[in-house]
């Protein structure tokens, strides 16, 4: 996608956000996080705090490490054989690399939504019920039904699918699939939701629905979202972090970043000089 020039760009900021300050408590924080792929260092010591009930957007040119960094927060980088993470990441003050904290438990607390909608090749119901079943969150069918229903409701999908919960999740449209994946993530009641370019595979209408949804969810979750779309960052986030070549260049309130960037690289990027 072409980056619009400054003149053509119309940033729309959500003014509600400005009036409601972040609730203050730090949910997760990263201290001097480095990620290596084999011998190559992909992230060079990043520090960042995620606050409760706040949306942080990660922006930056492709290959800048924003997705890699996002995946550190629930140790998804563990699934890549050659990837290695150093530094400290705290969830409610506890190191997530601590032996005592199980990665299973961590991921139940820090959920993730991926770039491409990836519903399991199962029914819609089973897709949502998967997580609660795994973690043994429910004892009986009616509790599970309730979780499925509330999760779908909160993901704004309930009305559309309530009559076909048994049909395969892969049969939904792209936007619906992505909302299904969000519903699947919130079904295990995480505290943080990581979203890795959740709208990049969707059309504009589906995107706007997801964006509205993110706004709704922020009341109950801490959200970090990677996006290549600056308008999206401007629309949904309270704070924006700009990454470049594996470094966190700048993090600030979204309006500040877009109107008054401190770093020349940030300015070059948001004005479309590279990226």
């Amino acid at each position: 996608m072409e980056q619009p020039t400054m003149g053509a760009m119309q940033m729309t900021f959500d003014d509600k956000k400005e009036s409601k300050p972040a609730s203050g408590a730090i949910k997760m924080s990263a201290r001097d996080v480095k990620v290596f792929y084999g011998d190559a260092e992909a992230i060079h010591g990043v520090n960042m705090d995620l606050y409760e009930n706040e949306v942080v957007a990660f922006i930056g040119p492709s290959g800048c490490g924003k997705s890699t960094f996002l995946r550190c927060f629930n140790r998804m980088n563990d699934t890549i054989d050659i990837a290695r993470v150093t530094g400290e990441i705290l969830l409610d003050g506890q190191d997530i690399h601590d032996k005592k904290l199980d990665v299973v438990q961590l991921r139940a607390q820090v959920g993730m939504v991926f770039q491409k909608p990836n519903p399991f090749p199962k029914s819609i119901y089973e897709n949502i019920a998967y997580g609660p079943r795994l973690h043994g969150l429910v004892d009986n069918k009616s509790d599970l039904d309730e979780i499925v229903e509330t999760s779908l409701q909160r993901a704004g999908l309930w009305k559309e699918v309530k009559d076909r919960l048994d049909s395969p999740g892969t049969g939904l449209s792209g936007g619906q699939q992505q909302r299904l994946c969000i519903a699947r993530a919130i079904a295990v009641s995480p505290e943080v939701i990581l979203m890795d370019e959740p709208c990049s595979a969707l059309d504009p209408i589906a995107t706007s629905i997801i964006e509205e949804l993110i706004d709704e969810l922020k009341g109950s979750f801490t959200i970090a979202i990677v996006t290549h779309n600056m308008q999206q960052a401007a629309r949904v986030s309270d704070k924006t972090a700009f990454f470049h070549l594996g470094d966190l260049v700048e993090i600030n309130a979204t309006r500040e970043i877009f109107t008054n960037p401190q770093d020349s690289r940030t300015e070059d990027y948001i004005t479309g000089r590279f990226g």
């Binding site: 969150l137 909160r154 209408i205 709704e216 009341g219 109950s220």
Partner: peptide, 29 residues
């Protein structure tokens, strides 16, 4: 915009409920 979802999310649980529920779930996990 058939997919609009604003009406559905009116029944959000309030924060304390949510925290309780989360604690319970974490215990189960």
């Amino acid at each position: 915009n058939m997919e609009a979802s604003n009406t559905e999310s009116t029944s959000l649980p309030d924060q304390t409920d949510l925290a309780k529920k989360r604690d319970l779930m974490q215990q189960r996990v």
